[in-house]
């Protein structure tokens, strides 16, 4: 896989001390600003209130920023009986959202996610959210043993999918690469905080994530792995919860739930996971993926096989969240290495 890159429109610098001002200006303009916050061992994105509860010390957030485009529960349509007639309401998403502090791998993940939803039949709510969302990525200075972006063709310096990418270049400065029109527009609204800058070589300021596996080799051989015996023994720890899918920036599966009575009701789209036993259960009672090893295999092959066939891209960005969050220590890197060893 080639290193993914985008075209940079402009370069600026921002004083880290001015971040507080920047955030407050965004808040005052009425936009929704999502920033990383910490609650015990969990880091997640939530609306900015003040600079003191913004978390900066994280390798990667526990929960991905995908809910900015694809929330855990969202209303697709609602109805209400009013004076004997039914009134149907479609959701409106007008509020502009800025996501601050996602990682370069997340920006690529969200690009995959929106391409998935906007591919053939453009999804109404995801399209509106995508149009109204600006992503300010924070390049990684550190990594841990679960990070593997470089193994899937990315790097802590990737700008693909970001609108603005910030890199801490020392001396209390962020180096800002402005990549899209949306990014340009946001900077223009807060131009007093940004100074012009020359292009610099970012490499020395970002983490150097070691290669964990060869994804070209994996893609080439993936068809041979379907019948591998390794799936069964490697999936024995898997307990079939949905934690991996729900923290994943590229997992797009959902379930539709209707909550209604004769007077009012809503149709809701909720996150779903291929690790759940009933995910593939047919109305007849037949289940094409009856055991956990089938479900684990599906997850891994989707990330590295089916999405390459269907969308010409891997659907794993190497953020390592599924590994960190798994209650039973399942590790997608171990599984891949084990398959490649055979």
């Amino acid at each position: 896989m080639k290193i993914l890159s985008g075209k940079i429109m402009n370069y600026k610098t921002l004083k880290i001390d001015n971040l507080d001002l920047f955030f407050n200006e965004i808040k005052k303009s009425g936009k929704n600003l999502l920033v990383p916050k910490k609650k015990g061992k969990t880091t997640y994105f939530s609306s900015f209130i003040n600079i003191n509860d913004v978390e900066f010390n994280y390798i990667q957030t526990t929960i991905s920023p995908k809910s900015a485009l694809f929330p855990k529960v969202e209303e697709l349509i609602s109805f209400k009986k009013d004076d004997g007639t039914y009134v149907v309401t479609e959701p409106s998403i007008e509020k502009e959202t800025i996501v601050f502090g996602l990682r370069p791998c997340d920006a690529v993940g969200l690009e995959y996610l929106s391409n998935f939803f906007l591919n053939e039949k453009s999804d109404f709510t995801v399209r509106l959210r995508k149009e109204n969302t600006t992503l300010i990525t924070l390049a990684c200075k550190n990594f841990d043993e679960n990070c593997f972006c470089t193994s899937v063709g990315l790097s802590p310096a990737s700008i693909k999918g970001s609108d603005i990418c910030l890199t801490d270049i020392g001396n209390g400065l962020f180096y800002a690469e402005i990549i899209t029109d949306k990014g340009e527009k946001l900077i223009a609204e807060h131009s007093a905080l940004f100074s012009n800058a020359e292009k610099i070589n970012k490499e020395s300021y970002v983490a150097q994530v070691p290669l964990k596996f060869d994804s070209d080799n994996l893609i080439k051989n993936i068809k041979n792995y379907y019948n591998s015996e390794k799936w069964t023994i490697n999936s024995l720890p898997c307990l079939g919860c949905g934690a991996c899918a729900f923290v994943c920036p590229t997992c797009t599966c959902f379930n539709i739930e209707d909550e209604a009575n004769p007077v009012c009701g809503t149709r809701l789209r909720c996150w779903d996971s291929c690790a759940f036993g009933i995910f593939t259960l047919h109305a007849s009672g037949h289940n094409p993926r009856p055991i956990q090893s089938n479900r684990w295999r599906h997850r891994v092959l989707h990330k590295f096989g089916y999405s390459v066939t269907n969308m010409d891209t891997l659907s794993c960005v190497g953020c390592g969240r599924c590994i960190r969050v798994c209650p039973a220590g399942m590790n997608i890197i171990e599984q891949i290495l084990d398959l490649q060893e055979a």
């Binding site: 855990k72 529960v73 079939g240 949905g242 809701l268």
Partner: peptide, 30 residues
């Protein structure tokens, strides 16, 4: 609702959990 709490629990062994009984739906699952 990732149900990791249920999955890790040695006492949660029902082959069909109440949240999966959806004909009719017993409790609200979203």
């Amino acid at each position: 609702k990732c149900y990791a709490c249920r999955a890790i629990c040695p006492m949660c062994y029902c082959s069909k959990c109440t949240v999966e009984l959806n004909q009719p739906q017993w409790i609200s699952v979203p």
